[in-house]
Computed example of a mutant assay.
Amino acid sequence: MRIRYALTASAATAAAAALGLAAAVPAQAAEYSSALKIKGVQYDAPGRDSNKCSGGNTKNEYLTIKNYSKTATVNLKGYKVKDAAGNTFTFKNSHTLQPGDYASLRGGRGTDSDAKNVVYRQNCNFIWNNDKDTIYLYKPSGSRADVHAYTKKANDRDGNGYITYHG
């Protein structure tokens, strides 16, 4: 007769920590309990980078945030997007996402539109690095909703400057 011992997740974590076996988990490996997640990022705007407010291409650099809930409507007001260098954008206005809906947060200046699913940062500087960066999405409470690190070489196999995360 074989006796099997079950080790609960909390006991396994405690045992690993006690033995010093806890390893650093890559930022993108963690899953957070949030309906809103980063669907994808156009981190490298097509064409030659120009952050001029008139005629530049910062509006072509964008982050897509999607409501993955099947039932909950979520308001983006108070959510924050941040990069590894600490550049931060806070959604100051109401922008409601129905289940399955998305919004593109674009660089540059423009008029926000629920109908067109677009919010502008009202800043003509690029936020995402073209070689590597980390994208953080925070809930209004300050807790993390989602995070993804990328490198051009490892994550953008076709080299088009766009990376998809949660399908």
Score class of each variant (00 low, 15 high):
Lys80Gly: 07
Asn75Trp: 01
Tyr102His: 10
Pro99Asn: 11
Leu21His: 01
Thr64Asp: 10
Arg144Glu: 03
Gln98Glu: 02
Thr88Pro: 01
Tyr43Trp: 12
Ser141Lys: 01
Thr88Ser: 13
Ser94Leu: 06
Leu19Arg: 15
Val119Asn: 06
Ser69Asn: 02
Ala115Phe: 07
Tyr68Phe: 14
Asn57Ala: 05
Ala16Gly: 13
Gly142Tyr: 03
Ile127Phe: 11
Gly47Asn: 04
Pro99His: 03
Arg121His: 00
Phe126Met: 01
Tyr138Arg: 00
Arg121Asp: 09
Thr151Val: 05
Asp146Phe: 03
Asp44Ile: 02
Asn160Asp: 15
Ser33Asp: 15
Ser34Asn: 12
Leu105Asn: 07
Thr96Glu: 10
Ala149Lys: 12
Ala6Lys: 09
Leu36Ile: 14
Ala103Pro: 00
Gly56Thr: 00
Ser104Asp: 12
Arg4Glu: 05
Arg157Thr: 13
Lys153Pro: 04
Arg106Ile: 07
Asp114Met: 05
Ala6Leu: 09
Ala145Pro: 09
Thr151Phe: 04
Lys116Phe: 02
Lys92Gln: 15
Asn87Lys: 14
Arg109Asn: 10
Tyr43Gly: 01
Tyr102Glu: 07
Gly159Ile: 07
Ala85Asp: 13
Gly55Arg: 05
Tyr138Glu: 12
Gly78Tyr: 12
Lys92Trp: 00
Thr164Val: 09
Thr71Pro: 12
Arg109Thr: 00
Asn87Asp: 12
Ala12Pro: 04
Ala9Asp: 14
Glu61Lys: 09
Lys39Cys: 11
Ala154Ile: 01
Glu31Phe: 13
Phe89Cys: 02
Ala15Cys: 09
Tyr68Val: 03
His95Ser: 06
Arg48Pro: 11
Cys53Glu: 03
Gly110Tyr: 01
Ser69Ala: 04
Lys77Cys: 06
Ser113Arg: 10
Gly161Ile: 04
Lys132Leu: 09
Ala35Trp: 15
Asn87Trp: 04
Thr88Gln: 14
Thr58Leu: 00
Tyr102Val: 12
Asp146Gly: 11
Ala35Val: 11
Lys80Tyr: 10
Ser54Tyr: 09
Trp128Arg: 08
Lys152Ile: 10
Tyr102Trp: 13
Gly47Val: 01
Val119Gln: 02
Ser69Asp: 01
Tyr120Leu: 02
Val147Phe: 02
Ser94Thr: 14
Ala22Ile: 15
Ile65Asn: 01
Gly110Trp: 08
Ala30Leu: 13
Lys70Ser: 15
Thr134Ile: 14
Asn123Met: 07
Ser94Gly: 06
Asp131Trp: 09
Gly110Lys: 05
Ala35Gln: 13
Asp101Ile: 09
Gly100Asp: 06
Gly110Phe: 11
